[in-house]
């Protein structure tokens, strides 16, 4: 398969950007594998409190039986962390896909068509953007909870609404600058229908800024999801395992010296957020030519053979005495 041109630099990176990208990718891939193979990897179900008819101990410290210990509800911490990564990845993928699918086309249309459509959309989006994002997510989650329930889908939609304005703004502003590019005008002059102009001439050049934002937003979405869960507006404990919820439950444990219930979900959040951030920064570095160039080392200029240069600090030739200057300065 041919790699899209705008992603080609990703495969040619060197130096710092490569390191960022690779280490970030390693972390993200790790969690994706956990998420996909959770049923195989996790020793128990996310809400399983007993095995073979024997109830797990409450708040047991890490042991051979329960590698990361158990919670106050007797669930296995390791299993919840693993199942939690499945929830996190599901929500993030859905949220990113939804917000891309809505924010990008809206931004394209708003930027290219302009006029009243643009002004109306900008107004709505700015209003959404100005809203404190967590509050917005809570409101959406609350509204949806009665009709759809408090599952993965609801959480994803709540987060989607938060990020749509971001894609919208970035894409719209980019479209507005691309729209004025001579090659867009040239396409019109050649008789390109408007849809073709948007698709082949505008979209292709605007889409470059999206991968970096999408990954950075993914990192942010993990945090938002955890915050929702922590505040009790996220995914219900009966629906899926969720790190934010676990953290919330672990608060009381912390005072009692029970560290494992809070540490591991917290660590998972930090790791995955860092992973996405590293990938995002890496992509940004790779796709931004200014940053890319800065990473190149200056060359070493080999010393010249003595005959080619005047002796250091030599008396400068007097002006006008060209013969002297010419022979002195240049190769004999």
């Amino acid at each position: 398969m041919r790699v899209p041109r705008f992603l080609q630099p990703v495969f040619e990176v060197r130096g710092m950007a490569r390191w960022l990208l690779l280490s970030g990718l390693a972390v993200v891939v790790f969690f994706v594998v956990l998420a996909i193979f959770a049923p195989l990897i996790a020793p128990y179900g996310f809400d399983q409190v007993s095995a073979d008819g024997v109830r797990f101990p409450k708040q047991a410290s890490p042991s051979g039986e329960h590698l990361l210990g158990t919670t106050v509800q007797s669930t296995d911490v390791l299993s919840r962390v693993i199942w939690g990564s499945r929830t996190a990845i599901e929500v993030v993928v859905l949220a990113v896909v939804f917000s891309l699918a809505i924010g990008v086309p809206l931004g394209l249309i708003s930027g290219y068509v302009g006029g009243r459509v643009d002004r109306a959309l900008v107004l709505v989006m700015d209003a959404l953007f100005a809203f404190p994002y967590l509050l917005l997510a809570i409101v959406i989650a609350f509204l949806l909870s009665s009709s759809v329930g408090q599952g993965v889908f609801t959480a994803a939609v709540a987060i989607t609404v938060v990020y749509i304005p971001q894609y919208f703004r970035v894409v719209r502003n980019h479209v507005i600058s691309v729209r004025e590019e001579p090659y867009v005008e040239a396409a019109r002059a050649l008789g390109a229908p408007r849809r073709t102009v948007i698709r082949r001439y505008v979209f292709h050049n605007v889409i470059q800024s999206v991968p970096a934002i999408a990954t950075l937003n993914a990192a942010d979405a993990i945090l938002t999801l955890a915050a929702l869960g922590f505040l009790g507006y996220g995914i219900q404990p009966t629906e899926a395992a969720e790190w934010g919820y676990d953290l919330q439950r672990a608060i009381d444990d912390a005072g009692a010296g029970i560290w494992w219930t809070g540490l591991f979900p917290g660590l998972a959040i930090v790791l995955l957020v860092t992973g996405f951030t590293l990938v995002g920064e890496g992509i940004n570095d790779v796709l931004n030519p200014l940053i890319r160039q800065r990473a190149v080392e200056p060359p070493v200029i080999p010393a010249q053979p003595d005959s080619e240069l005047p002796p250091p600090g030599a008396e400068p030739p007097p002006r006008g005495a060209t013969e002297a200057r010419a022979t002195e300065v240049h190769r004999e």
């Binding site: 705008f6 001579p182 040239a186 396409a187 050649l190 229908p193």
Partner: peptide, 28 residues
Amino acid sequence: QIVFQDPHASLNPAMTIGAAIADPLRFH
């Protein structure tokens, strides 16, 4: 037809030269 001042800016950076020239044939 029109040819603009800045040759660099008049070509879509995301399109090969061949595709850029084929496009108007497709439009019409």
